[in-house]
Computed example of a mutant assay.
Amino acid sequence: MYVFTLIPMLALAAAVPLAWGWGLSWLDVGLAVGFYLLSGFGVTVGFHRYLTHRGFRANEGLRTGLAVAGSLAMQGDVIGWVADHRRHHAYTDKEGDPHSPWIYGTTPVALARGAVHAHVGWLFDRDRTNAERFAPDLLADRRLVRISALFPLWTVLSLLTPALVGGLATLSWWGALTAFFWAGLVRVAVLHHVTWSINSICHMLGDRPWESAGRATNVWPLAILSMGESWHNLHHADPTCARHGIGRGQVDLSARVIWVLERVGWADTVRWPTARRLARLRRRL
């Protein structure tokens, strides 16, 4: 976990000075965006809304594809990720929550410490989530167990596939190296921090128009990069809902992907928000 977390972070720190003078092409940008969307939707649509919360039902091919795509984000194996997130919902912003920013108190110093813990510190905590308790359904699925065990392979492919494409497209080692840096390391680091911001920022700052467990909020500046995950308040009010952004202007790209998957017949039984469903949620404002 240290390697998967720290190396992309170091690459992100080096990205600005490197981009200023050399080493960033439109091919690198295209590969970075493409792999960001692939791995990002793998997490938001696959790991989160499907495997964790069962916001829809997927056929076997889609189930496998989403589990692999999410693994390319290098945020841990699929079973561990799901177990951690289900535990987060079971103990939201209380003792037992693996990444609440409120665990140290409400003073400025305590919140600063909690923000660091919620954003990245919890990843190095020895308190591991019991998958047998929080993800027994995934442990019972042999295909998902196999995908989870192959996490090191998905990590290698996530970093080296952009390099292979970059090298072949430019017929040069330099093209492979820059693609590895931008579409591999930097892309992973950006997606890491966007995802971790849902744990930290979206439990500290923002609007809370819906009554929900804990202190989950909506943070609109993160909506595009997080693919709709930063409409976090409604998600905690109604975790199984397949769409998180339901208000005017609340862009939710993950919900749009699920809508497309439903239209082509790969997903069904989608838990869309309805007037009756929302009426059961208590408005705070």
Rank of each mutant, 00 (worst) to 15 (best):
F4N: 02
T5W: 10
L12M: 14
A19T: 01
A19S: 05
W26D: 09
F35Q: 01
L37M: 05
L37F: 06
S39P: 01
R49V: 14
Y50W: 04
T52I: 08
R54Q: 07
F56L: 13
V68A: 01
G70S: 06
A73M: 03
G80D: 14
E95A: 13
G96E: 02
D97N: 07
P98A: 08
S100E: 02
G105W: 01
V109M: 07
V109E: 07
L111V: 12
A115V: 11
H117S: 11
F124R: 05
F124K: 08
D141E: 11
R142T: 08
I147N: 04
W154L: 03
T155L: 08
V156L: 12
L157T: 02
L164Y: 10
G166V: 09
S172P: 03
T178G: 14
A179G: 08
R187A: 02
H193N: 12
V194S: 12
W210L: 11
A216S: 15
T217N: 07
A223Q: 04
C241D: 09
H244S: 12
I246T: 13
G247T: 14
R248K: 15
G249T: 02
I258M: 06
W259I: 07
V260P: 10
E262V: 15
W266M: 14
A275N: 12
R283K: 10
L285V: 10
